[in-house]
Design a protein around this nucleic acid. Structure first.
Lengths: 131, 131
DNA sequence: ACACCAGATGCAACATTGTTGCATCTGGTG
DNA sequence: CACCAGATGCAACAATGTTGCATCTGGTGT
């Protein structure tokens, strides 16, 4: 993936990628950091992780979004596409994101001249543990 | 408004409220702070401003949302309600936001245990001039 | 008009998230 | 194998938001 995207294949990038590949949901910087620090390979520098994530987003491998607390979360672009069809629930307290399969994203009906590229249906509130 | 909401009527709250009443858009903490510091009455403590905003949101007078950078912005609930029922279109090129009256926000149908507080339908794309 | 007190304010210190500068290291290329 | 653009690691900084605590004040009962 990295080679295809035209960026250098480095240890940190491979580790972060494998993390995103395994993830079930969009991960925050802090979550990736603690996940990686549990590995044998040891910790990854905080700043390096920020820059690795920037580069993955920049070359189109990953996508960046905001959770309800205003924290950036990352997921593979390929996975993100699979989540474009239903709503997402953002917990205002813990920041976790849940898929709401029961709420499909409506097809855009835009005024003439507007070109829709993506639609997102975002619900804010409290998840069961936090409520 | 404050008395009706059942909270104490204090100087800081009145100053922040008048600020929000005049505002054309949702304001960030920093914007309100610099606006207030230009007044004759002098500066308002940073922390007090956070707590005033919390109390206004808590008693239902104001509402809190996130901008694209992950910064909280505040506006009067009365103004926000006028925008809660329809979708918003964000132009990826010029950044402008348009109301899409033709796309109503669906009523949430959440799994048991989840408490929904707000729903937003956000479309990204290109507006007529940019397309 | 006065005293009281829950809640609001102001200050200091801290926490979290994200960024910048710079010296060093390394993946890819010739 | 040597080179170098770009990646990494470290330190310091910046922006945003939170907590603890002493003091002050708006509202209420007297």
């Amino acid at each position: 993936m990295l080679r295809q995207a035209g960026v250098k294949v480095t240890q940190p990038r491979l580790r972060v990628l494998s993390c995103l590949l395994e993830a079930q949901a969009a991960l925050s910087h802090a979550e990736i950091e603690s996940w990686l620090s549990a590995e044998d390979a040891g910790e990854l520098d905080r700043v390096t992780l920020y820059r690795v994530l920037d580069s993955l987003v920049g070359c189109g491998i990953a996508s960046r979004s905001l959770d309800a607390r205003g924290v950036f979360r990352f997921m593979l672009k390929s996975m993100q596409l699979a989540h474009a069809e239903h709503a997402h629930f953002h917990c205002q307290r813990c920041g976790r994101v849940f898929c709401v399969a029961s709420m499909p994203v409506p097809t855009p009906s835009l005024p003439t001249g507007f070109v829709g590229i993506s639609v997102a249906l975002e619900i804010s509130g409290l998840c069961p543990p936090c409520a």
